Computed example of a mutant assay.
Amino acid sequence: MKTYDIEVQRLKSARHDKGVIELGVDALVLPRQARDEGQPTSSVRLPVEHARTLLILLKQQIAELDKLQPRSRRSGRA
């Protein structure tokens, strides 16, 4: 499995369609060197201001998705 270091440089957009949230970003993607520390994983790095923006965008998109759910399905979430 190939692993990557992904550095988000700019958040451009967020939208949802058919239960999938799609984020538009400018990102730097570099292959990560293999390590002997168990399972290989990719990592995403983003500045704090982008992380806060991402959180706000995700909350907005999830709220819009929740509006589309019938009330009986919204109340049972954990």
Rank of each mutant, 00 (worst) to 15 (best):
R52T: 10
L46N: 03
G38N: 05
A14D: 01
S42K: 03
R71M: 10
Q33L: 12
D26A: 14
D66I: 14
L58N: 01
R32M: 01
K67R: 14
A63I: 02
T3P: 00
P40V: 00
Q9S: 05
R10Y: 13
Q39R: 01
K67V: 14
E37R: 10
G24S: 07
K12S: 07
E49G: 01
D66F: 14
E22S: 11
L55Y: 07
Q61M: 11
R45W: 13
S42L: 02
A34L: 11
K2M: 11
R71Y: 09
K59M: 12
G19M: 02
E37D: 14
A63D: 13
Q69P: 00
H50M: 08
K59H: 11
S43T: 12
Q33N: 05
T3N: 03
A27S: 06
V8G: 01
S42Y: 03
K59E: 11
A78W: 11
V20C: 06
Y4L: 06
P40Y: 04
S75E: 06
Q60N: 11
T53K: 11
R52D: 10
K2A: 10
R32N: 01
R73C: 02
L65Y: 09
H50L: 15
K2P: 05
E7P: 00
D26V: 15
E49S: 08
S75P: 00
S72F: 08
V25P: 02
M1K: 14
Q39S: 02
Q39E: 05
R45D: 09
E7W: 02
K67W: 14
R74C: 07
L68R: 14
K12F: 04
V44C: 05
L28M: 15
K59Q: 14
Q39T: 04
Q60P: 00
R35H: 09
T3F: 00
P70Y: 07
A51F: 05
R71C: 06
Q39H: 01
L11N: 06
H50D: 13
P31S: 07
E37N: 15
L65T: 11
A34F: 11
P70D: 13
E7H: 09
V8H: 02
R35M: 06
V25N: 05
L23F: 12
R45M: 08
Y4E: 04
R15D: 03
P40F: 05
K18P: 00
P40A: 10
M1H: 09
S13W: 03
V20N: 04
R10I: 09
E22W: 13
G38S: 08
M1T: 11
T3M: 06
T41P: 00
A34Y: 10
